[in-house]
Design a protein around this nucleic acid. Sequence first.
RNA 1: GGGGGGUUUCCCGAGCGGUCAAAGGGGUCAGACUGUAAAUCUGAUGGCAUAGCCUUCGCAGGUUCGAAUCCUGCACCCCCCA
Length: 425
Amino acid sequence: MDIFAELDWRGLVHQTTDPQNLRQWLSEGSKIVYAGFDPTSDGLHVGNFVPLMMLRRFQKAGHRPIVLAGGATGMIGDPSGKSEERNLLSAEQIEHNLEGITHELGQFLDFDGPQAARLVNNYNWMKEWDYLTFLRDIGKHFPVNVMLGKESVKARLEETEAGMSYTEFSYMLLQAYDFVHLRKTHGCGLQVGGSDQWGNITAGIELARRMGEGGLHGLTCPLLTKSDGTKMGKTEQGAIWLSPKKTSPYVFYQYWYNTEDADVDACLRMLTELSEKEILSLADERANAPQQRRSQQELASSLTRLVHGDEGLQKANKASEVLFGATIEQMSDADLTDIFADVPSQELARDQLANEGLSIIEALCQSGLAKSKSDARRTVDQGGAYVNNRRVEDQSRSLTQADLASETVMVLRSGKKRYALLKFV
RNA sequence: GGGGGGUUUCCCGAGCGGUCAAAGGGGUCAGACUGUAAAUCUGAUGGCAUAGCCUUCGCAGGUUCGAAUCCUGCACCCCCCA
């Protein structure tokens, strides 16, 4: 399989050091490819997805991936694509972040077999350097005028008033040296990354050449952006994370399911492992029957399965079904807790359900769905109140044992999507 | 220092001394429609024991049967002249 051709049709090739040679080089046999991830937060998010998948694709095509966790570079802060100097993360924070992301990185790659992936941390080799030696051995190879010409630096100096510290300015040296180091110790010949990494990657190649290691390659993929120009993976509630602890499989699934028609094709190509044929056929279906949302379904399913496994996908599916209208009854507490993991819940005394029961108005207030009783009444009046996904039309309705959806839980909803759980214990 | 204008419900903004919980717009919420989209349409949008009552119009007093509307003082904002 020609990996380069595949990356090409997927739209993953943004810039390369030399398309002809790179393609040739890749076809010669199993190569070592690396991508770096800085521990700027304690988990991976959708923004890390594309480079991760790149490595995965390389591995599947018979190459060996190296994942570099930036324990050292993370301490400095990459200025690429940042308009302002950032606050330094504390050493403990970085340690914590590294722990978080390293194990997540693992799940995308195969760490066994002949193409076993490797995980390295650049802190392990950077910590050996002392300042003077680094300046003499590495810094000497970096002409400042070239560094000033790099987009990451230029943008900061020319287009903003933010300026840049010597620390961030030096970031490039560290990442450049990583490449050289991996070349020497692992025989790594290609670095991949997002398009904002181009400057850092070429700096590495340049450094290697000056240090007597020629023939390195670089490849960047486009940043995944939506048709409106905003970044993929950001919502008003924050980033979409890969860890189920930070973003539930359901929210993850829904995020992709709601992808705009205009964006879904690029997502399918860049993020999934569906074949070109499948993707073209989805494009066809989308053109003929957009309301079926088959593309979105495939995208959401395939990514959820990849990140959260079959079980996670099932949960997300079940949750979607329930959250979008299926009536809720005869379920277990465990099921409901799972499905409504992201939904606020309140505990109430069980005896509130006895006798007359709890009025729907009161219940809406208690659950936080209504700001006041008037608000609750309005909601009911307007037909926006639901118990266990059944509409409640009568203000005087009261809730009793019979309205429990499971052993102890009742599911309230206001409007289309706002849910709350009441637990009666 | 002198003069003028302003401060209204989530935001903007209208508001003859009674018919003002306060126009209109935005936002938000709900409903219909729909593709879990966009657009559109309808309704709602201080609180409560909801045919009624209570609390709101910068703050504190006052006039009046009655004040967001008039008067006095205070605070903050804007403009003009020095």
